[in-house]
């Protein structure tokens, strides 16, 4: 029994940011999962004492910067999402993997919905259904990471 240390959280968030910054284009850009959001959600659900609403908000702010959109829209969406993640975090530990994945999928969709609403308020156009593809690819990546037992946090694996 050990607590997650700060280092893996920080490193995985940095890695997620780098993945987000890769020069994606074309179809890959359309299906690219939100790496940063997934990393934030993972740590919010696993270690809320290290990664909380503030972390999510800050990650959202960086997303705002690199996406060049309205300042604060991703920040708001990420903060709201991580609020729901934190509120149900203890109950979620009782769920099985597929129920957890379902909940995470809902959270991903919720984030996209919030950013969509904010974009529409700012005078954006209504995108097609493919707008929600990143949520689908995101949940696939999530399940892949959970199943592959990626050694994100070596210490808790040993425990």
């Amino acid at each position: 029994m050990s607590t997650t240390s700060f280092k893996p959280v920080f490193l995985s968030l940095l890695l997620a940011l780098l993945l987000q910054l890769l020069p994606w284009s074309g179809t890959l850009l359309m299906v690219r999962p939100e790496f940063l959001l997934l990393a934030v959600l993972y740590w919010t659900l696993r270690a809320p004492h290290l990664c909380n609403i503030g972390t999510a908000w800050f990650a959202g702010l960086i997303m705002d910067l690199i996406s060049g959109g309205l300042f604060g829209q991703f920040a708001l969406a990420y903060a709201l999402t991580s609020f729901f993640a934190v509120t149900y975090q203890r109950r979620l530990a009782l769920f099985n993997i597929w129920q957890q994945a379902g909940y995470v999928f809902l959270l991903l969709l919720f984030t996209q919905l919030i950013t969509l609403v904010l974009k529409l308020f700012a005078g954006g156009e209504l995108p097609g259904w493919e707008y929600f593809l990143p949520s689908v690819s995101g949940i696939l990546l999530w399940q892949f990471v959970i199943f592959s037992r990626l050694n994100i946090d070596s210490r808790s694996n040993k425990a």
């Binding site: 909380n52 609403i53 503030g54 908000w57 959202g60 702010l61 309205l70 300042f71 604060g72 829209q73 920040a75 708001l76 903060a79 709201l80 609020f83 934190v86 509120t87 904010l118």
Partner: peptide, 18 residues
Amino acid sequence: PTARLFFFAVLSLVLIAT
């Protein structure tokens, strides 16, 4: 969490408006 959410939501709304 509610207090945190409130704080950060207000912060982001201020940013958006600005």
